[in-house]
Every structure is written in structure tokens, then in C-alpha cells.
Design a protein around this nucleic acid. Structure first.
Lengths: 163, 163
DNA sequence: GAAGTATACTTAACATGTTAACTGAATTCA
DNA sequence: TGAATTCAGTTAACATGTTAAGTATACTTC
């Protein structure tokens, strides 16, 4: 709008890469969630873990990593932190001593139920400002995008139809 | 497609937040670029800086931060690293001693011209697999999204019409 | 049933993200 | 002009991202 003259199909003028556009979009959303989470003493990633735990009542680390989309080393550190805060408990899987099983403590559940409504409110704002319809289109395109790119170079997990 | 039964408008079942969907999309793309960049001895962020420098021939840190979408502390560290690798030179702005001005060295330019084609090739793959049309839709939606959300809680820079 | 392999994390090391405090140079204004 | 303020970058401290190596348990196979 400012410059008027945009090339017909720039798609990428070597400084607006797709990863960076995705990052900008993500950042514009996170700029709203971060202060709220910070008020609750949480980082974005810690909240992702708590949210996953709240939905499952007992999960091993691998499942947690998948659901919260965190790499194992990050998850290890985050769980250590959440344990030290008494928000999460760790126990060993009876059938497989390699697996660690995690649960939300009552403080953890309490924290979740305090943060969740704030999170919902911010989502509602976004839906309202951007429009539910466009938001759905965006969700759909994003899912299609990463499902398209996944087969060629995906995460080593969740590929079961490869053998 | 796999499960068949998807709710009509989930939009977010409390474990598929928009930031995470954006992250997944971004990650699916970066999973392709990262190995290539790694082969050239670069991280994604270092490449963003070099790309911005290659387009401008002489930039101060603030402009670099905006163009590469990096926070100042990250940029500081990255520039220190690139200087130590002799890929970038630093000099002081004559008119404003606060500003640092950066340029690509000849090695830096050389590296850029080696990486750029590899980057282009991967983009071409993505365009081909996902489809140019969908990719354009995605770009457009993303831009619309972050432009919509920006006014309410934007970066303190590049807002000039606020006064 | 012991060696070999795979699995589920954990550690380590380095790079970046995020926020806050800090330094020095320009600007404003009384 | 000199104190107060703003601005550009840097430093600091802690959390996470990324890759590689390590550890212990489970599984496989001969």
C-alpha cells in the first residue's frame, strides 16, 4: 500500500522468506500471549507442556514431546523446572523402566484453570479481529503445508506408514 | 484424512494453538533449509543477517535487526560471530557515533553467492510440491494476519503513524 | 542367554530467544 | 550550556533451540 508498485508475483524478494513470514505471524500472536503467561510465571513452552498434561492426566515424555512440539532436550529441562515448582510429578512406568510418566499436581491443575480462561480470551480477541473465517483458512493452509512437506524430511516419530 | 472424523470447526482443541500450528509449518520448512545451511557452516539466523547485508551494501544494526527480524541482543551476538569469521566488518557511522555500520567482506559476499542458489533450489522444491497458488495464498494470509494483529501490540519500531 | 541393536530419555555444548539493566552518544529544553 | 531525556547498542541472566554423545533399559537374534 505504501509503495504502490509491488511486483506481480514476488513470492520472495530474497528478504521475505517463508520461514520469516511464518515467524512474523507467530510473533504477532505470541506478543499477546507472552505478557499474560508471564503474569502467571510461565513461558510459552512451559504452558504448552502444562496444557498437554491437563488433557491427559498421565503421559510419558515421548508423548508429551509430540503433543507440545518440543525437542527432547528442551522438554527434559522444562520438566525438571516444573518438578522443582511442584507443578508436576514424575514416576517410572511400571512396565518399562525407561519411560518416565508425568502428572499435574493439584497446584498444576489449579494453575491451568487460572491460565486457560485468559488464554481463551486472547484467542477470542484474535478471532474477532482477524475474522473466524480467515482464521480457519489459515489453519487449513498451515496444516496442508506441513503435511505436504513432512514426507520428504519429517520428524523421525509419527511416521508409521513408511515400512 | 486418516481419522475421517474431524469436528466441523475445532479451530483449537486446546492443544492445537495457532502459535503451535505456525511453528509446525515453519519447522516443516526449516527442516529442509537447516541441513543445507549447516553444510555451509551457517545457522538460520546468521543466514538471515548475511542475506540482509547482501541486499544493502552498508547497514546499521537497527536496520539489520528489522530486516532480519532479530532482537537486538541476538543480533549483537551474531554480528560478533560473523566479525570473528571475517564475513562482516564493523565501522562507526560518521554522523552518529552511536550507530555501528556493517558490511559484507568479500568472503561474506562469496559465501552469500554460494548459499543463495541452494536456498533458491529448496524454495523451488517447496513451490513445486505445495503449489505456487497455495503458497501465494499462504503468504497473503500470513501478511494480513500479522498486519491485523500488529496495531494492538506491535514492536516499538516501524510504527510511525502513531503520533 | 549373552552379544548386538533399538528405545527412551538425559547431558553437554553452543547458538538464539527474552527481558531487564547498563553504557555512551545524541537531543531537548529550561 | 547543562541537566534531563531519548536513542543505539551492549551486557547479563535465564530459558529454549539444535545437534551430538551418553546411559540405562528393553528387545532381537543367534
Amino acid at each position: 500500500m505504501a509503495k504502490g508498485k509491488e511486483r506481480a508475483a514476488p513470492l520472495r524478494d530474497f528478504e521475505h522468506s517463508l520461514p520469516m513470514e511464518l515467524l512474523k505471524a507467530r510473533e504477532s500472536a505470541m506478543a499477546r500471549f507472552r505478557p499474560m503467561l508471564r503474569d502467571h510465571g510461565l513461558t510459552e513452552q512451559q504452558w504448552r507442556v502444562i496444557r498437554a498434561l491437563a488433557a491427559l492426566e498421565s503421559v510419558d515424555a515421548g508423548e508429551l514431546a509430540r503433543r507440545s512440539f518440543l525437542l527432547a532436550p528442551s522438554l527434559t529441562r522444562i520438566l525438571q523446572h516444573l518438578e522443582s515448582e511442584k507443578l508436576v510429578t514424575r514416576s517410572a512406568d511400571a512396565n518399562d523402566q525407561r519411560r518416565a510418566v508425568f502428572k499435574l499436581t493439584s497446584s498444576g491443575k489449579q494453575l491451568f484453570s487460572k491460565v486457560a480462561p485468559d488464554s481463551e480470551a486472547l484467542y477470542a480477541d484474535i478471532e474477532c479481529e482477524f475474522g473466524v473465517h480467515k482464521l480457519e483458512s489459515l489453519y487449513a493452509l498451515l496444516a496442508e503445508f506441513y503435511q505436504t512437506l513432512a514426507p520428504a524430511a519429517a520428524a523421525p516419530e509419527d511416521r508409521s506408514a513408511t515400512a
